[in-house]
Design a protein around this nucleic acid. Structure first.
Length: 563
RNA sequence: GCCCCGCUAGCUCAGUGGAUAGAGCAUCUGCCUUCUAAGCAGAGGGUCGGGGGUUCGAAUCCCUCGCGGGGCGCCA
Protein backbone atom coordinates (compact mmCIF):
# COMPACT_ATOMS: atom_id res chain seq x y z
CA UNK A 1 0.00 0.00 0.00
CA UNK A 2 2.64 2.48 1.08
CA UNK A 3 5.51 1.95 -1.32
CA UNK A 4 7.93 2.90 1.39
CA UNK A 5 9.30 6.32 2.08
CA UNK A 6 12.13 6.04 -0.40
CA UNK A 7 9.83 5.57 -3.36
CA UNK A 8 7.61 8.39 -2.15
CA UNK A 9 10.55 10.74 -1.97
CA UNK A 10 11.73 9.57 -5.35
CA UNK A 11 8.46 10.35 -7.06
CA UNK A 12 8.19 13.69 -5.29
CA UNK A 13 11.65 14.52 -6.54
CA UNK A 14 10.82 13.42 -10.03
CA UNK A 15 7.76 15.65 -10.08
CA UNK A 16 9.87 18.57 -8.97
CA UNK A 17 12.36 17.84 -11.73
CA UNK A 18 9.60 17.81 -14.31
CA UNK A 19 8.47 21.20 -13.10
CA UNK A 20 11.88 22.49 -14.06
CA UNK A 21 11.07 21.49 -17.61
CA UNK A 22 13.03 18.27 -17.78
CA UNK A 23 11.24 15.66 -19.83
CA UNK A 24 13.77 12.83 -19.88
CA UNK A 25 14.43 12.38 -16.19
CA UNK A 26 17.66 10.49 -15.62
CA UNK A 27 18.32 8.21 -12.69
CA UNK A 28 18.51 10.68 -9.84
CA UNK A 29 20.35 8.33 -7.51
CA UNK A 30 18.13 8.83 -4.56
CA UNK A 31 19.61 6.73 -1.82
CA UNK A 32 20.37 6.64 1.84
CA UNK A 33 22.71 9.33 3.03
CA UNK A 34 25.87 7.86 4.50
CA UNK A 35 26.61 10.78 6.76
CA UNK A 36 23.90 11.67 9.31
CA UNK A 37 24.78 15.32 8.79
CA UNK A 38 23.38 14.93 5.28
CA UNK A 39 20.03 13.73 6.51
CA UNK A 40 18.43 10.39 5.78
CA UNK A 41 18.28 10.34 1.99
CA UNK A 42 20.28 12.16 -0.61
CA UNK A 43 20.06 12.69 -4.32
CA UNK A 44 22.67 14.04 -6.70
CA UNK A 45 19.92 15.52 -8.87
CA UNK A 46 21.65 18.89 -9.22
CA UNK A 47 24.81 17.29 -10.58
CA UNK A 48 22.87 15.00 -12.84
CA UNK A 49 20.84 17.75 -14.44
CA UNK A 50 23.49 20.45 -14.68
CA UNK A 51 24.40 19.68 -18.25
CA UNK A 52 20.89 19.49 -19.63
CA UNK A 53 19.67 22.57 -17.80
CA UNK A 54 22.89 24.54 -18.29
CA UNK A 55 22.75 25.74 -14.74
CA UNK A 56 25.01 25.41 -11.75
CA UNK A 57 24.36 22.12 -9.89
CA UNK A 58 23.83 23.88 -6.60
CA UNK A 59 21.35 26.25 -8.16
CA UNK A 60 19.33 23.33 -9.52
CA UNK A 61 19.43 21.61 -6.17
CA UNK A 62 18.14 24.79 -4.56
CA UNK A 63 15.25 25.08 -6.99
CA UNK A 64 14.34 21.45 -6.44
CA UNK A 65 14.47 21.76 -2.68
CA UNK A 66 12.30 24.84 -2.96
CA UNK A 67 9.61 23.37 -5.17
CA UNK A 68 9.42 19.79 -4.00
CA UNK A 69 6.25 18.80 -2.23
CA UNK A 70 6.43 15.87 0.14
CA UNK A 71 3.13 14.48 1.31
CA UNK A 72 2.33 14.32 5.01
CA UNK A 73 5.33 16.46 5.79
CA UNK A 74 7.30 13.23 5.86
CA UNK A 75 10.60 14.90 5.16
CA UNK A 76 12.28 18.20 4.58
CA UNK A 77 14.49 18.86 1.60
CA UNK A 78 17.50 21.09 1.46
CA UNK A 79 20.20 21.75 -1.09
CA UNK A 80 23.85 21.04 -0.39
CA UNK A 81 27.04 21.73 -2.27
CA UNK A 82 28.05 20.80 -4.83
CA UNK A 83 24.58 19.82 -6.04
CA UNK A 84 22.82 17.44 -3.72
CA UNK A 85 19.30 17.51 -2.44
CA UNK A 86 19.25 16.10 1.07
CA UNK A 87 16.13 14.76 2.73
CA UNK A 88 15.51 14.50 6.42
CA UNK A 89 12.61 12.52 7.81
CA UNK A 90 10.63 14.61 10.24
CA UNK A 91 10.08 13.51 13.85
CA UNK A 92 6.33 13.98 13.41
CA UNK A 93 6.18 11.61 10.49
CA UNK A 94 8.43 9.06 12.19
CA UNK A 95 6.21 9.14 15.26
CA UNK A 96 3.12 8.46 13.19
CA UNK A 97 4.93 5.68 11.38
CA UNK A 98 5.62 3.99 14.69
CA UNK A 99 1.95 4.10 15.58
CA UNK A 100 0.99 2.63 12.23
CA UNK A 101 3.52 -0.17 12.37
CA UNK A 102 2.59 -1.01 15.94
CA UNK A 103 -1.08 -1.18 15.05
CA UNK A 104 -0.50 -3.29 12.00
CA UNK A 105 1.45 -6.05 13.71
CA UNK A 106 3.74 -8.41 11.86
CA UNK A 107 3.58 -7.92 8.15
CA UNK A 108 4.73 -4.33 7.84
CA UNK A 109 6.82 -4.02 4.70
CA UNK A 110 4.76 -6.45 2.66
CA UNK A 111 4.51 -5.24 -0.90
CA UNK A 112 2.68 -6.01 -4.07
CA UNK A 113 5.58 -5.99 -6.47
CA UNK A 114 4.66 -9.42 -7.75
CA UNK A 115 0.99 -8.78 -8.46
CA UNK A 116 0.20 -12.42 -7.82
CA UNK A 117 2.77 -13.62 -10.34
CA UNK A 118 2.87 -17.39 -10.34
CA UNK A 119 6.43 -18.54 -10.29
CA UNK A 120 8.40 -21.53 -9.33
CA UNK A 121 11.46 -21.54 -7.16
CA UNK A 122 13.37 -24.73 -7.76
CA UNK A 123 16.29 -25.25 -5.46
CA UNK A 124 18.66 -27.82 -4.01
CA UNK A 125 17.51 -30.70 -6.25
CA UNK A 126 20.55 -32.73 -5.31
CA UNK A 127 20.77 -36.26 -6.64
CA UNK A 128 19.06 -38.24 -3.87
CA UNK A 129 21.91 -40.68 -3.61
CA UNK A 130 23.40 -39.65 -0.32
CA UNK A 131 23.01 -37.42 2.69
CA UNK A 132 23.21 -33.65 2.36
CA UNK A 133 26.48 -32.03 3.32
CA UNK A 134 27.15 -28.49 4.49
CA UNK A 135 27.59 -27.25 0.94
CA UNK A 136 24.03 -28.20 0.12
CA UNK A 137 22.80 -26.16 3.04
CA UNK A 138 23.63 -22.99 1.21
CA UNK A 139 21.37 -23.66 -1.75
CA UNK A 140 18.57 -24.93 0.47
CA UNK A 141 18.60 -21.84 2.67
CA UNK A 142 19.05 -19.42 -0.20
CA UNK A 143 16.18 -20.89 -2.20
CA UNK A 144 13.88 -21.11 0.78
CA UNK A 145 14.54 -17.55 1.90
CA UNK A 146 14.12 -16.28 -1.61
CA UNK A 147 10.72 -17.96 -1.81
CA UNK A 148 9.73 -16.39 1.49
CA UNK A 149 10.75 -12.95 0.28
CA UNK A 150 8.96 -13.33 -3.03
CA UNK A 151 5.84 -14.43 -1.24
CA UNK A 152 6.04 -11.40 1.05
CA UNK A 153 6.26 -9.14 -1.98
CA UNK A 154 3.13 -10.36 -3.65
CA UNK A 155 4.37 -13.24 -5.77
CA UNK A 156 2.90 -16.70 -5.69
CA UNK A 157 5.96 -18.91 -5.47
CA UNK A 158 5.84 -22.68 -5.56
CA UNK A 159 8.83 -24.45 -4.08
CA UNK A 160 9.96 -27.45 -5.99
CA UNK A 161 12.59 -30.13 -5.64
CA UNK A 162 13.47 -31.94 -8.83
CA UNK A 163 14.14 -35.55 -7.95
CA UNK A 164 16.59 -37.23 -10.30
CA UNK A 165 15.29 -40.76 -10.04
CA UNK A 166 16.11 -41.96 -13.48
CA UNK A 167 19.56 -40.76 -14.41
CA UNK A 168 22.93 -42.46 -14.39
CA UNK A 169 23.58 -41.57 -10.77
CA UNK A 170 20.24 -42.98 -9.70
CA UNK A 171 20.92 -46.24 -11.49
CA UNK A 172 24.39 -46.42 -10.01
CA UNK A 173 22.84 -45.89 -6.63
CA UNK A 174 20.40 -48.74 -7.25
CA UNK A 175 23.26 -50.99 -8.35
CA UNK A 176 25.22 -50.10 -5.24
CA UNK A 177 22.34 -51.08 -2.99
CA UNK A 178 21.88 -54.26 -5.01
CA UNK A 179 25.53 -55.12 -4.50
CA UNK A 180 25.36 -54.55 -0.75
CA UNK A 181 22.21 -56.61 -0.52
CA UNK A 182 24.13 -59.52 -1.96
CA UNK A 183 27.23 -58.85 0.10
CA UNK A 184 29.22 -57.52 -2.83
CA UNK A 185 31.29 -54.42 -3.31
CA UNK A 186 29.53 -51.54 -5.11
CA UNK A 187 30.38 -51.15 -8.79
CA UNK A 188 33.00 -48.83 -10.18
CA UNK A 189 32.12 -45.20 -9.37
CA UNK A 190 29.30 -46.50 -7.21
CA UNK A 191 28.29 -45.40 -3.73
CA UNK A 192 30.23 -46.79 -0.83
CA UNK A 193 28.96 -45.01 2.26
CA UNK A 194 27.65 -46.93 5.24
CA UNK A 195 24.18 -45.58 4.53
CA UNK A 196 24.09 -47.70 1.36
CA UNK A 197 24.41 -50.85 3.42
CA UNK A 198 21.76 -49.56 5.81
CA UNK A 199 19.36 -49.04 2.96
CA UNK A 200 20.10 -52.55 1.69
CA UNK A 201 19.27 -53.91 5.13
CA UNK A 202 16.06 -51.93 5.24
CA UNK A 203 15.15 -53.23 1.80
CA UNK A 204 15.74 -56.77 2.99
CA UNK A 205 13.18 -56.20 5.73
CA UNK A 206 10.64 -54.18 3.83
CA UNK A 207 10.78 -55.79 0.40
CA UNK A 208 10.28 -59.49 1.13
CA UNK A 209 11.75 -61.76 -1.53
CA UNK A 210 13.83 -59.00 -3.05
CA UNK A 211 16.97 -61.08 -2.88
CA UNK A 212 15.47 -63.81 -5.01
CA UNK A 213 14.45 -61.51 -7.87
CA UNK A 214 16.45 -61.41 -11.08
CA UNK A 215 18.98 -58.60 -11.26
CA UNK A 216 17.16 -56.14 -13.51
CA UNK A 217 13.88 -56.37 -11.68
CA UNK A 218 15.53 -56.22 -8.28
CA UNK A 219 17.69 -53.25 -9.21
CA UNK A 220 14.69 -51.28 -10.37
CA UNK A 221 12.79 -51.94 -7.16
CA UNK A 222 15.85 -51.24 -5.04
CA UNK A 223 16.55 -48.02 -6.84
CA UNK A 224 13.02 -46.76 -6.23
CA UNK A 225 13.22 -47.88 -2.62
CA UNK A 226 16.61 -46.31 -2.05
CA UNK A 227 15.71 -43.03 -3.68
CA UNK A 228 12.51 -42.81 -1.70
CA UNK A 229 14.53 -43.39 1.45
CA UNK A 230 17.02 -40.68 0.56
CA UNK A 231 14.30 -38.23 -0.41
CA UNK A 232 12.73 -38.82 3.00
CA UNK A 233 16.04 -38.17 4.64
CA UNK A 234 16.63 -35.00 2.64
CA UNK A 235 13.14 -33.81 3.47
CA UNK A 236 13.83 -34.35 7.15
CA UNK A 237 17.19 -32.63 7.06
CA UNK A 238 15.98 -29.50 5.32
CA UNK A 239 12.84 -29.61 7.44
CA UNK A 240 15.06 -29.11 10.47
CA UNK A 241 16.13 -25.83 8.87
CA UNK A 242 12.55 -24.79 8.32
CA UNK A 243 12.81 -25.46 4.61
CA UNK A 244 9.72 -26.91 3.05
CA UNK A 245 8.68 -27.80 -0.45
CA UNK A 246 5.34 -27.72 -2.20
CA UNK A 247 6.28 -30.26 -4.84
CA UNK A 248 8.80 -33.09 -5.06
CA UNK A 249 8.86 -33.56 -8.79
CA UNK A 250 10.17 -36.81 -10.17
CA UNK A 251 12.18 -36.95 -13.32
CA UNK A 252 10.50 -40.25 -14.16
CA UNK A 253 7.13 -38.51 -14.21
CA UNK A 254 8.33 -36.44 -17.13
CA UNK A 255 8.93 -39.52 -19.19
CA UNK A 256 5.60 -41.03 -18.22
CA UNK A 257 3.95 -37.87 -19.53
CA UNK A 258 6.07 -38.00 -22.65
CA UNK A 259 7.36 -34.46 -22.23
CA UNK A 260 10.99 -35.06 -23.23
CA UNK A 261 9.68 -36.85 -26.28
CA UNK A 262 7.49 -33.87 -27.18
CA UNK A 263 10.39 -31.50 -26.65
CA UNK A 264 12.70 -33.58 -28.82
CA UNK A 265 10.09 -33.72 -31.54
CA UNK A 266 9.64 -29.99 -31.47
CA UNK A 267 13.36 -29.35 -31.63
CA UNK A 268 13.69 -31.81 -34.46
CA UNK A 269 11.00 -30.05 -36.46
CA UNK A 270 12.57 -26.67 -35.94
CA UNK A 271 15.94 -28.02 -36.95
CA UNK A 272 17.83 -27.83 -33.69
CA UNK A 273 18.67 -31.51 -33.60
CA UNK A 274 21.17 -33.42 -35.67
CA UNK A 275 22.74 -36.84 -35.68
CA UNK A 276 26.43 -37.36 -35.35
CA UNK A 277 28.43 -40.42 -34.36
CA UNK A 278 25.20 -42.30 -33.81
CA UNK A 279 23.99 -39.90 -31.16
CA UNK A 280 21.37 -37.17 -31.32
CA UNK A 281 22.70 -33.70 -30.61
CA UNK A 282 21.11 -30.42 -29.73
CA UNK A 283 22.92 -27.62 -31.50
CA UNK A 284 23.10 -24.94 -34.05
CA UNK A 285 24.55 -26.65 -37.09
CA UNK A 286 21.36 -27.09 -39.05
CA UNK A 287 20.23 -23.60 -38.31
CA UNK A 288 23.27 -21.91 -39.73
CA UNK A 289 21.78 -22.21 -43.19
CA UNK A 290 19.07 -19.68 -42.58
CA UNK A 291 21.29 -17.50 -40.46
CA UNK A 292 19.06 -17.82 -37.45
CA UNK A 293 20.97 -20.41 -35.54
CA UNK A 294 23.99 -18.42 -34.68
CA UNK A 295 21.89 -15.78 -33.08
CA UNK A 296 20.13 -18.30 -30.95
CA UNK A 297 22.91 -20.70 -30.18
CA UNK A 298 26.62 -20.50 -29.87
CA UNK A 299 28.67 -22.98 -31.83
CA UNK A 300 30.18 -24.72 -28.85
CA UNK A 301 26.90 -25.53 -27.19
CA UNK A 302 26.27 -28.78 -28.95
CA UNK A 303 24.90 -31.20 -26.47
CA UNK A 304 23.99 -34.87 -26.62
CA UNK A 305 20.30 -35.50 -26.12
CA UNK A 306 20.17 -39.20 -26.94
CA UNK A 307 23.34 -41.24 -26.58
CA UNK A 308 24.47 -43.58 -29.30
CA UNK A 309 23.33 -46.47 -27.13
CA UNK A 310 19.81 -45.10 -27.22
CA UNK A 311 19.82 -43.82 -23.63
CA UNK A 312 18.68 -40.25 -23.14
CA UNK A 313 20.92 -37.85 -21.21
CA UNK A 314 19.79 -35.64 -18.37
CA UNK A 315 19.57 -32.89 -20.95
CA UNK A 316 16.65 -34.70 -22.58
CA UNK A 317 14.87 -34.72 -19.25
CA UNK A 318 15.65 -31.09 -18.69
CA UNK A 319 14.09 -29.86 -21.90
CA UNK A 320 11.00 -31.87 -21.05
CA UNK A 321 11.10 -30.30 -17.61
CA UNK A 322 10.99 -26.87 -19.25
CA UNK A 323 7.79 -27.81 -21.02
CA UNK A 324 6.36 -29.18 -17.81
CA UNK A 325 6.84 -25.90 -16.08
CA UNK A 326 6.15 -23.34 -18.75
CA UNK A 327 3.51 -25.06 -20.86
CA UNK A 328 1.92 -27.70 -18.71
CA UNK A 329 1.92 -25.87 -15.42
CA UNK A 330 2.05 -22.34 -16.80
CA UNK A 331 4.48 -20.69 -14.44
CA UNK A 332 5.15 -17.16 -15.52
CA UNK A 333 8.74 -17.44 -14.38
CA UNK A 334 10.97 -20.21 -13.15
CA UNK A 335 13.76 -19.40 -10.73
CA UNK A 336 16.47 -21.97 -10.30
CA UNK A 337 19.11 -21.89 -7.63
CA UNK A 338 22.24 -23.73 -8.70
CA UNK A 339 25.70 -24.22 -7.34
CA UNK A 340 28.40 -22.49 -9.33
CA UNK A 341 29.68 -25.85 -10.51
CA UNK A 342 26.67 -25.92 -12.86
CA UNK A 343 27.54 -22.58 -14.32
CA UNK A 344 28.48 -24.02 -17.69
CA UNK A 345 24.98 -25.36 -18.05
CA UNK A 346 23.25 -21.99 -17.85
CA UNK A 347 23.73 -20.91 -21.43
CA UNK A 348 22.66 -24.30 -22.75
CA UNK A 349 19.44 -24.20 -20.78
CA UNK A 350 18.80 -20.67 -21.99
CA UNK A 351 19.43 -21.78 -25.55
CA UNK A 352 17.12 -24.73 -25.15
CA UNK A 353 14.44 -22.46 -23.79
CA UNK A 354 14.73 -20.23 -26.82
CA UNK A 355 14.83 -23.16 -29.19
CA UNK A 356 11.61 -24.50 -27.73
CA UNK A 357 9.96 -21.20 -28.50
CA UNK A 358 9.89 -20.04 -24.91
CA UNK A 359 11.14 -16.77 -23.44
CA UNK A 360 14.61 -17.28 -21.96
CA UNK A 361 14.17 -14.27 -19.69
CA UNK A 362 11.50 -16.20 -17.85
CA UNK A 363 14.10 -18.71 -16.79
CA UNK A 364 16.05 -17.04 -14.02
CA UNK A 365 19.10 -18.89 -12.82
CA UNK A 366 20.75 -17.85 -9.60
CA UNK A 367 24.19 -19.25 -8.99
CA UNK A 368 25.70 -19.53 -5.58
CA UNK A 369 29.41 -20.06 -5.23
CA UNK A 370 30.88 -23.14 -3.63
CA UNK A 371 31.22 -24.07 -0.02
CA UNK A 372 34.67 -25.56 0.40
CA UNK A 373 35.91 -27.40 3.40
CA UNK A 374 38.87 -25.76 4.99
CA UNK A 375 42.13 -27.64 5.20
CA UNK A 376 42.12 -30.29 7.87
CA UNK A 377 38.64 -29.38 9.01
CA UNK A 378 37.41 -32.90 8.46
CA UNK A 379 38.58 -36.25 7.28
CA UNK A 380 40.52 -35.80 4.10
CA UNK A 381 42.58 -32.87 3.06
CA UNK A 382 39.94 -30.20 2.61
CA UNK A 383 38.86 -28.61 -0.62
CA UNK A 384 35.79 -29.62 -2.50
CA UNK A 385 33.51 -31.96 -0.68
CA UNK A 386 32.95 -35.30 -2.25
CA UNK A 387 30.52 -38.03 -1.39
CA UNK A 388 32.57 -40.67 -3.10
CA UNK A 389 35.78 -39.64 -1.37
CA UNK A 390 33.98 -39.61 1.97
CA UNK A 391 35.18 -36.06 2.44
CA UNK A 392 32.27 -34.10 3.79
CA UNK A 393 30.50 -32.90 6.90
CA UNK A 394 26.82 -33.63 6.86
CA UNK A 395 24.30 -30.85 7.14
CA UNK A 396 22.60 -32.80 9.92
CA UNK A 397 25.76 -32.79 11.97
CA UNK A 398 26.13 -29.06 11.56
CA UNK A 399 22.53 -28.47 12.64
CA UNK A 400 23.03 -30.80 15.62
CA UNK A 401 26.00 -28.84 16.83
CA UNK A 402 25.11 -25.26 15.95
CA UNK A 403 21.35 -25.12 15.56
CA UNK A 404 19.11 -24.15 12.70
CA UNK A 405 18.99 -20.41 13.38
CA UNK A 406 22.75 -20.00 13.51
CA UNK A 407 23.22 -22.10 10.39
CA UNK A 408 20.70 -20.09 8.43
CA UNK A 409 22.09 -16.77 9.56
CA UNK A 410 25.64 -17.84 8.86
CA UNK A 411 24.85 -18.73 5.26
CA UNK A 412 22.57 -15.80 4.59
CA UNK A 413 25.09 -13.23 5.76
CA UNK A 414 27.09 -13.93 2.65
CA UNK A 415 26.23 -12.86 -0.83
CA UNK A 416 25.75 -15.87 -3.13
CA UNK A 417 28.73 -14.59 -5.10
CA UNK A 418 31.32 -15.32 -2.47
CA UNK A 419 32.99 -18.66 -2.01
CA UNK A 420 32.74 -19.94 1.52
CA UNK A 421 35.74 -21.61 3.10
CA UNK A 422 33.99 -23.58 5.74
CA UNK A 423 35.94 -24.14 8.91
CA UNK A 424 33.91 -26.51 11.05
CA UNK A 425 36.08 -26.10 14.12
CA UNK A 426 35.70 -22.36 13.93
CA UNK A 427 31.97 -22.57 13.29
CA UNK A 428 31.53 -24.71 16.38
CA UNK A 429 33.78 -22.55 18.51
CA UNK A 430 32.00 -19.41 17.44
CA UNK A 431 28.48 -20.72 17.49
CA UNK A 432 27.79 -18.85 20.72
CA UNK A 433 28.93 -15.63 19.11
CA UNK A 434 26.82 -16.02 16.03
CA UNK A 435 25.36 -12.62 15.18
CA UNK A 436 21.94 -14.20 15.02
CA UNK A 437 21.76 -14.02 18.81
CA UNK A 438 22.29 -10.30 18.73
CA UNK A 439 19.11 -9.90 16.73
CA UNK A 440 17.16 -12.48 18.66
CA UNK A 441 18.20 -10.91 21.92
CA UNK A 442 16.82 -7.57 20.78
CA UNK A 443 13.52 -9.26 20.08
CA UNK A 444 13.46 -11.05 23.42
CA UNK A 445 14.32 -7.83 25.24
CA UNK A 446 11.44 -5.98 23.66
CA UNK A 447 9.09 -8.78 24.49
CA UNK A 448 10.24 -8.76 28.09
CA UNK A 449 9.80 -5.02 28.40
CA UNK A 450 6.27 -5.29 27.15
CA UNK A 451 5.56 -7.94 29.78
CA UNK A 452 6.97 -5.73 32.48
CA UNK A 453 4.88 -2.82 31.30
CA UNK A 454 1.74 -4.89 31.39
CA UNK A 455 2.46 -5.76 35.03
CA UNK A 456 3.29 -2.25 36.11
CA UNK A 457 0.55 -0.52 34.15
CA UNK A 458 -2.28 -2.99 33.78
CA UNK A 459 -4.72 -0.35 32.61
CA UNK A 460 -2.98 1.74 30.01
CA UNK A 461 -5.12 3.86 27.72
CA UNK A 462 -5.47 2.85 24.12
CA UNK A 463 -4.53 6.19 22.59
CA UNK A 464 -0.92 7.13 22.63
CA UNK A 465 0.65 10.55 22.32
CA UNK A 466 3.38 9.72 19.85
CA UNK A 467 4.94 13.14 20.10
CA UNK A 468 6.44 11.98 23.39
CA UNK A 469 8.90 9.91 21.39
CA UNK A 470 11.43 12.66 21.05
CA UNK A 471 14.73 11.20 22.18
CA UNK A 472 17.27 10.69 19.42
CA UNK A 473 17.67 6.99 20.18
CA UNK A 474 13.90 6.60 19.96
CA UNK A 475 13.71 8.34 16.62
CA UNK A 476 16.65 6.22 15.42
CA UNK A 477 14.57 3.11 15.93
CA UNK A 478 11.69 4.73 14.06
CA UNK A 479 14.08 5.68 11.27
CA UNK A 480 15.16 2.07 10.89
CA UNK A 481 11.51 1.08 10.66
CA UNK A 482 11.09 3.58 7.84
CA UNK A 483 13.85 1.83 5.90
CA UNK A 484 12.34 -1.63 6.08
CA UNK A 485 10.04 -1.47 3.03
CA UNK A 486 12.89 -0.50 0.72
CA UNK A 487 15.07 -3.30 2.07
CA UNK A 488 12.32 -5.77 1.29
CA UNK A 489 11.83 -4.31 -2.13
CA UNK A 490 15.53 -4.47 -2.98
CA UNK A 491 15.89 -8.00 -1.66
CA UNK A 492 12.98 -9.13 -3.80
CA UNK A 493 13.80 -7.21 -6.94
CA UNK A 494 17.48 -8.15 -6.91
CA UNK A 495 16.74 -11.58 -5.46
CA UNK A 496 19.31 -11.04 -2.74
CA UNK A 497 18.17 -12.47 0.58
CA UNK A 498 21.41 -11.46 2.29
CA UNK A 499 20.10 -7.91 2.50
CA UNK A 500 17.63 -9.01 5.15
CA UNK A 501 20.05 -10.16 7.87
CA UNK A 502 22.10 -7.00 7.40
CA UNK A 503 18.99 -4.94 7.97
CA UNK A 504 18.07 -7.07 10.96
CA UNK A 505 21.42 -6.23 12.45
CA UNK A 506 20.91 -2.49 11.95
CA UNK A 507 17.47 -2.55 13.50
CA UNK A 508 18.72 -4.64 16.42
CA UNK A 509 21.49 -2.11 17.01
CA UNK A 510 18.96 0.72 17.20
CA UNK A 511 16.85 -1.35 19.56
CA UNK A 512 19.73 -2.17 21.88
CA UNK A 513 20.75 1.48 22.07
CA UNK A 514 17.19 2.51 22.78
CA UNK A 515 16.96 -0.08 25.51
CA UNK A 516 20.32 0.80 26.93
CA UNK A 517 19.38 4.44 27.32
CA UNK A 518 17.18 3.22 30.15
CA UNK A 519 20.16 1.64 31.85
CA UNK A 520 22.04 4.91 31.73
CA UNK A 521 19.14 6.89 33.11
CA UNK A 522 16.02 5.39 34.62
CA UNK A 523 13.94 8.20 33.20
CA UNK A 524 14.58 6.82 29.73
CA UNK A 525 13.21 3.38 30.41
CA UNK A 526 10.18 2.18 28.62
CA UNK A 527 8.37 1.40 31.83
CA UNK A 528 8.25 4.58 33.87
CA UNK A 529 5.77 6.06 36.31
CA UNK A 530 4.21 8.28 33.66
CA UNK A 531 1.62 6.09 31.92
CA UNK A 532 1.48 8.32 28.85
CA UNK A 533 5.19 8.17 28.28
CA UNK A 534 5.20 4.44 28.91
CA UNK A 535 2.38 4.09 26.42
CA UNK A 536 4.25 5.90 23.66
CA UNK A 537 7.46 3.95 24.23
CA UNK A 538 5.53 0.71 24.26
CA UNK A 539 4.27 1.54 20.80
CA UNK A 540 7.85 1.82 19.70
CA UNK A 541 8.66 -1.53 21.28
CA UNK A 542 5.77 -3.22 19.57
CA UNK A 543 6.56 -1.70 16.20
CA UNK A 544 10.20 -2.73 16.43
CA UNK A 545 9.40 -6.18 17.73
CA UNK A 546 6.91 -6.85 14.96
CA UNK A 547 9.34 -5.70 12.35
CA UNK A 548 12.15 -7.80 13.78
CA UNK A 549 9.83 -10.78 13.80
CA UNK A 550 8.76 -10.14 10.23
CA UNK A 551 12.35 -9.79 9.04
CA UNK A 552 13.52 -12.90 10.87
CA UNK A 553 10.59 -14.83 9.40
CA UNK A 554 11.73 -13.92 5.92
CA UNK A 555 15.05 -15.62 6.53
CA UNK A 556 13.55 -18.51 8.45
CA UNK A 557 15.06 -17.58 11.79
CA UNK A 558 13.04 -17.82 14.98
CA UNK A 559 12.21 -14.79 17.10
CA UNK A 560 12.33 -16.05 20.69
CA UNK A 561 10.37 -14.30 23.42
CA UNK A 562 12.92 -15.24 26.04
CA UNK A 563 16.63 -15.92 25.99
C1' G B 1 43.02 -21.60 -24.13
C1' C B 2 37.71 -19.97 -23.27
C1' C B 3 33.57 -18.79 -19.63
C1' C B 4 31.70 -17.46 -14.49
C1' C B 5 32.72 -15.71 -9.30
C1' G B 6 35.94 -13.43 -5.85
C1' C B 7 40.28 -10.05 -4.20
C1' U B 8 37.77 -4.06 0.81
C1' A B 9 40.72 -3.41 8.46
C1' G B 10 44.71 -8.90 11.65
C1' C B 11 40.27 -12.64 10.33
C1' U B 12 35.10 -13.29 8.12
C1' C B 13 32.38 -10.15 5.12
C1' A B 14 28.66 -5.68 3.65
C1' G B 15 28.75 -1.59 0.40
C1' U B 16 21.73 0.75 -6.22
C1' G B 17 28.37 5.90 -10.12
C1' G B 18 28.17 10.38 -5.34
C1' A B 19 30.06 13.81 0.11
C1' U B 20 34.90 11.70 5.51
C1' A B 21 34.58 3.41 2.67
C1' G B 22 31.29 0.26 7.03
C1' A B 23 29.81 -4.19 10.32
C1' G B 24 30.96 -8.63 13.14
C1' C B 25 35.01 -11.24 15.30
C1' A B 26 39.90 -10.44 17.39
C1' U B 27 43.02 -6.58 20.45
C1' C B 28 42.83 -2.52 24.11
C1' U B 29 39.74 0.90 27.67
C1' G B 30 35.35 2.07 30.36
C1' C B 31 29.80 0.75 31.97
C1' C B 32 25.34 -3.96 35.68
C1' U B 33 21.86 -2.80 43.90
C1' U B 34 16.86 -0.38 39.41
C1' C B 35 12.61 -2.96 32.27
C1' U B 36 17.39 -9.29 30.13
C1' A B 37 25.41 -7.26 30.19
C1' A B 38 23.84 -12.87 24.44
C1' G B 39 23.98 -5.60 25.88
C1' C B 40 26.10 -0.26 25.62
C1' A B 41 30.11 3.50 24.94
C1' G B 42 35.11 4.41 23.18
C1' A B 43 40.26 3.39 20.86
C1' G B 44 43.55 1.43 17.42
C1' G B 45 43.52 -0.82 12.63
C1' G B 46 42.59 0.65 4.98
C1' U B 47 47.69 2.22 -1.48
C1' C B 48 39.18 -1.02 -1.64
C1' G B 49 44.83 -6.91 -5.63
C1' G B 50 48.35 -3.80 -9.54
C1' G B 51 48.09 -0.53 -13.81
C1' G B 52 45.46 2.26 -17.46
C1' G B 53 40.67 4.55 -19.14
C1' U B 54 35.46 6.81 -19.03
C1' U B 55 33.23 10.73 -15.76
C1' C B 56 32.16 16.95 -12.62
C1' G B 57 32.77 12.43 -9.36
C1' A B 58 35.02 5.26 -9.42
C1' A B 59 35.52 0.19 -4.15
C1' U B 60 31.39 0.45 -7.82
C1' C B 61 31.55 1.09 -15.08
C1' C B 62 35.31 -0.37 -19.34
C1' C B 63 40.28 -2.49 -20.71
C1' U B 64 44.54 -5.06 -19.01
C1' C B 65 47.66 -7.91 -15.75
C1' G B 66 48.19 -10.87 -11.19
C1' C B 67 46.32 -14.30 -7.39
C1' G B 68 42.41 -17.72 -5.57
C1' G B 69 37.81 -20.72 -6.46
C1' G B 70 34.47 -23.07 -10.06
C1' G B 71 33.27 -24.80 -15.01
C1' C B 72 34.39 -26.21 -20.20
C1' G B 73 32.26 -35.16 -21.08
C1' C B 74 27.67 -39.66 -25.24
C1' C B 75 28.75 -37.43 -15.91
C1' A B 76 25.02 -34.59 -13.19
Amino acid sequence: MDGGIRSRLASALESAVRELGVTQVPDLELGRAKNPAHGDYASSAGLKLARELRQAPLQIASSLAGTIRIADGAATAEPAAPGYVNFRLTPEWLQQLVAQVAARGPGYGAADIGRDERLQVEFLSVNPTGPLHIGHGRGAILGDSLARILEFTGHKPEREYYVNDQNTQARLFGESVYARLHGDEPPERGYTGAYVTEIAEAARRELPGIEALPHDEAEQKLRAFAIAAMVDRIRMTVGRLGVRYDVWFQESALWKDGLPQVAIERLRESGFLKERDGALWFGSALEEEDGLGEQVLAEDEDRVVIRSNGEPTYFASDIGYLLSRFEQRHFNRVIEVWGADHHGYVSRMKSATTALGLDPDKLVIILNQMVNLKEGAAAGTGGKMSKRAGRFVTLDELIDRVGSDAVRYFYLLRSPDTTIEFDLELALAQSNENPVYYAQYAHARLFNVELTAAERHPRLREEADMSLLAQPWELDVARQLAFWPEVVEDAARLMEPHRIPYYVHDLATAVHRFYHAGNEDGAHRVVVDDPLLTRARLELCRAARHTLKTALDLIGVSAPERM
